Computed example of a mutant assay.
Amino acid sequence: MPKSLIHRLQETRLALGNKGKPLSQTRFGEMIGVSQAAVSRWEKAEDQPTEENLLKLIEIEPSFAEFLPIRAQNLPVYSMVAAGKLSAAPTIEQAHIAELKRLPVAGLPKGQYFILQVNGDSMSRIAPDGAYIVVDRGDRTPITGKCYIFMVNGEATFKRYRAKPLRLEPVSFNLDHDPIELDDLEGISVVGRVVKVFMDL
């Protein structure tokens, strides 16, 4: 069991006690619906709370939420996106129409996610041809150095954004790929930021 969880249990019992004495393990267990022996095992790192136990603990002390297991989200997988020349991709803007399947992805914070498969090698240092990328459609404000799915005149491409000079650049082992140089962002929209890459799903 993580040491910080042991400390959190002990600190919580102390906060619930009186006159500087911690609440007894028996009383604390009753609040959660477990025995004194279970609390004792937790604090000795001989066992750990179940997810159901943690949900009860969160009702007492919300900070226990950080110990909940990370759940996998089943994200929709849509059509391929170009990592080379621009490609027509109406399904990226209307992704719900073209959903093919769903794949589980864990460890993502709150966001609006979907998955695309990379077609091409212009981003091969980050995501080689055939890799899967997780896109957050809720993150559309380009920040220099971050990677996004861009729509340019109705066509989609996966590139890294640079503000000075303004361009959409490849990140590739293939030096034949050139950046898309821009005067401004007129006619360009951001579908979402690429937050995770999977080589094999």
Rank of each mutant, 00 (worst) to 15 (best):
V118T: 05
F158V: 06
L75R: 12
A83P: 02
F64N: 14
R13T: 15
L54Y: 11
P104I: 02
L103A: 05
Y148P: 09
G17P: 11
R125F: 00
P49G: 12
Y113I: 00
Q73M: 04
Y78E: 03
D200Q: 04
E66Q: 15
I149S: 04
T144A: 09
I60K: 13
E51M: 03
L166M: 02
A45F: 03
R27I: 13
D176V: 07
L201Q: 05
K164M: 09
P76Q: 12
L57R: 03
E30W: 11
P62D: 14
F158E: 08
Y161G: 03
P128C: 08
L54A: 14
P128R: 12
R162Q: 04
A72P: 13
G145I: 06
V118I: 13
E155Q: 12
E186H: 13
A82T: 02
A38L: 13
K196M: 11
S35I: 10
M31V: 08
L100W: 00
A72F: 04
A65N: 06
D139N: 15
L166R: 11
A131E: 00
Q25E: 15
G154W: 09
S122I: 11
Q10H: 09
F114K: 03
G111W: 08
K21Q: 15
I58Q: 07
V77P: 05
G29R: 01
G138I: 04
F150W: 12
V134S: 02
F114D: 04
V171I: 12
Q94A: 14
V118M: 10
R167Y: 03
V118C: 02
P76M: 12
T26A: 14
T141H: 15
G187A: 01
I97N: 11
V194Q: 03
K44F: 07
Q10F: 05
M199Q: 10
L166W: 05
Q117E: 04
P104V: 02
G107S: 04
R137F: 08
V191A: 08
K101R: 12
I133Y: 12
Y161R: 05
A131F: 00
S87F: 06
K85P: 10
L185V: 03
N74P: 06
K164S: 15
L168H: 05
V171D: 14
Q10T: 06
E186S: 14
Y78N: 07
D200W: 01
I126G: 09
N153M: 10
K159A: 01
Y113K: 03
L166I: 06
L108F: 00
A131I: 00
M80T: 10
T157L: 05
S189G: 08
S63M: 08
Q25R: 10
Q112C: 07
G17T: 04
K44G: 10
K101G: 01
F114W: 01
A83F: 07
F64S: 13
F64I: 09
P49H: 08
P2A: 14
G138L: 07
S24T: 15
N119D: 13
G192R: 07
K3H: 15
L201A: 09
L14I: 01
V77R: 09
K44S: 11
G192E: 04
F198V: 02
M199V: 13
G145S: 05
P179M: 04
N53F: 06
R13V: 15
L100I: 01
I97A: 11
I143P: 12
M80R: 15
R160Q: 15
S124C: 13
